[in-house]
């Protein structure tokens, strides 16, 4: 087994009174996407900035690709690429100029930088806008260029801090595709997100952090299994049918059906997964009950999150004023 790409051991970092990292342990393996999931102020950004050697931990040990980050930060910087929460590109320069500049700073010759910039522009579908100033780009294009700026260095480990926050669904999908493509080419990725579906879509491993600590980690499926069972959810066409639906579903489910009269829904835990769904469909058909919708719903990471933290996961929903702002300590 190759050594882990990231090995964090008891990382501690305070900003004033706020403990942004409170003994964080995390191991990320090569060949995988590791997602760090948590609410605002959980310590996600501080952790990424620590791996990027921008924040020095007060205690604990951090190894990146086997290199001690405290002792050899320069060597760590040779293998990482950071795309932060902000699209850190120069708006008065064109996309191509931005990529060339970063490529030069990674130590590429003028010719290599021009070639590398061209290749990345093509790979990210930015050729059409390559020679336009970044100030004219949409938010999605900027984020893609920002990702591109890390790629011109061909980093072994890509650090993405909330890469899609604030993007519309289409731009998000674009960026996800770009990230998947990178992973397929052998780049290791550590990303933070507050979107559970993003972790679900991209990550092989998920670490859920809260108050500067990892409170759960595992594959997305494992985490979901911890939160609860599959549910069969049925929406009645006629509200009057609800009692009959409950009677029909009770025998196929693995627990008491729950009724939401307001939306006309009945939900019942399904132990057998798809088999239970088949049974439910048959039962409804036998009774001739009309339904608008029937589905097998797996627990979402949202539910995992709620179960583990006992609090809401969405920004704005989680009123945690005692926490530092996500970018606390940025120099």
């Amino acid at each position: 087994m190759a050594e882990p790409i990231i090995e964090a051991d008891g990382l501690v970092r305070r900003f004033g009174k706020v403990e942004a990292l409170a003994g964080l342990d995390l191991t990320a393996h090569s060949g995988q996407v590791t997602a760090v999931l948590g609410p605002n102020g959980a310590g996600k950004t501080t952790f990424v900035r620590t791996v990027a050697t921008l924040v020095r931990p007060e205690a604990g040990r951090l190894r990146v690709a086997g290199v001690d980050a405290a002792r050899h930060p320069g060597r760590v910087r040779q293998i990482i690429g950071l795309a932060g929460q902000y699209a850190a590109v120069e708006p008065t320069m064109t996309g191509r100029e931005n990529l060339r500049m970063v490529a030069r700073l990674y130590g590429r010759s003028r010719r290599q930088a021009a070639g590398g910039a061209q290749e990345v522009l093509a790979r990210l579908g930015l050729e059409d806008v390559a020679d336009r100033r970044v100030a004219t780009y949409s938010g999605g294009l900027r984020r893609r260029l920002d990702l591109g700026a890390t790629l011109v260095g061909a980093p072994r480990l890509l650090l993405l801090d909330e890469p899609t926050t604030g993007l519309d669904p289409r731009s998000r999908n674009h960026l996800w595709d770009a990230i998947r493509d990178l992973v397929a080419r052998g780049t290791d990725v550590l990303l933070t997100t507050q979107y559970l579906d993003e972790a679900d879509q991209l990550a092989h491993q998920v670490a859920i952090i809260d108050h500067g600590r990892v409170i759960a980690h595992g594959r997305p499926a494992e985490l979901k299994a911890r939160a609860g069972r599959d549910m069969i959810e049925v929406r009645a066409r006629h509200p009057a049918d609800l009692p009959a639906l409950v009677r029909a579903l009770a025998p196929v489910g693995a627990g008491e059906p729950r009724v939401d009269a307001g939306t006309g829904r009945v939900a019942v835990p399904a132990a057998g997964g798809p088999r239970a769904l088949t049974a439910a469909v048959r039962a409804l058909g036998d009774l001739g009950l009309a339904v608008d919708d029937i589905a097998l719903r797996r627990p979402t990471l949202d539910e995992v999150f709620l179960t583990l933290t006992g609090g809401p996961s969405r920004p704005g929903g989680g009123d945690r004023p005692e926490h530092a702002p996500e970018h606390a300590g940025r120099a």
């Binding site: 900035r49 990027a52 050697t53 921008l54 320069g74 910087r77 040779q78 990482i80 690429g81 950071l82 932060g84 929460q85 902000y86 699209a87 850190a88 590109v89 120069e90 970063v102 700073l105 990674y106 130590g107 700026a149 260095g153 650090l159 940025r330 120099a331």
Partner: peptide
């Protein structure tokens, strides 16, 4: 540059 994250990018580069 600090506010917009550009300093972070530069500081994370091997220079």
């Amino acid at each position: 540059d600090g506010d917009q994250g550009l300093l972070d990018r530069l500081r994370s580069l091997p220079v």
